[in-house]
Amino acid sequence: MMNRFLDSDFFHDFLRAPVALISFCVVLILVLSAVFAQFIAPTNPFDPASLELMNGFTPPLEANMFTGEIFLLGTDDQGRDLFSAILYGLRISLFVGLMAVTLAMVLGVMLGLIAGYVGGWLDNLIMRLADIQMTFPSILIAMLIFGIARGLLPPELRYEMAITVLIISIGLSEWVPFARTVRGSTMVEKEKEYVAAARLIGLNRWQIMIRHILPNVLGPVLVIATITFALAIIAEATLSFLGVGAPPTEPSLGTLIRVGQDYLFSGEWWILLFPAVTLLALALAVNLLGDWLRDTLNPRLK
């Protein structure tokens, strides 16, 4: 299995594409450092007891004027070590992005399969819904869903549920591209004779959709998932930047950028810069990887 992968065209192309290689390495480093944050980070930024207010606004690699402590990337207004905060924030950004994409993918693929296979009024209903949603910017949809969900939740749950609500609102705002692609490929696949053969032995719609058609329409979905993953990370950061995402007690990259933005013009540039550069590197690398995947897996571009 491994040997077959190392021998494949896909792997060969990958080694010859510097952009893909570098992007992959960037994503890998960021993901690994987020996963192993508790072993790498010198402090736990989510633990309020470990914060020392006197450490606030320490510039990178300079000794704090009261405590004499030195921080690699400096500290924020609360005296939180920025390097640790970025690693833990990255973890939240990646987790939210991954879960949101999974939700969008499952929802979009199922709706696309049903619309494409069943057709008729159901197809019309689902695709018109998708069209309507496409006319709004997805960040607006996410904010709308976020607002409604927050309004429905009792106040004491708002902070606890913030991440879940964030995932649902981003997931629901990104299902359309999955549904459109899957619907198109399903309409092509359902006319093929292997589907007729499955109908001949009395399989029902669900069995045909899940067992026969689904495996044949998943190829493009993985490409869309990669690109949507980058969009979801940015959407999370945007929502958190606007103050409606991850709570300040568990800051994601977007929350850190929002905090940093307040101090940019008073000279504390590092609070904004480092989280922003991390977010940029992550989103750019995932996006470039997605673009490369799309081009490589599309036989017409070869």
């Binding site: 093929k192 004779e193 292997y194 007729a196 053969a197 499955a198 001949l200 026969h212 495996p215 044949n216």
Partner: peptide, 15 residues
């Protein structure tokens, strides 16, 4: 039962 025209489209490529 039935034998289909196209030997390419009548077998699910993922099975």
């Amino acid at each position: 039962q039935m034998v289909f025209q196209s030997p390419y489209a009548s077998l699910n490529p993922r099975w």
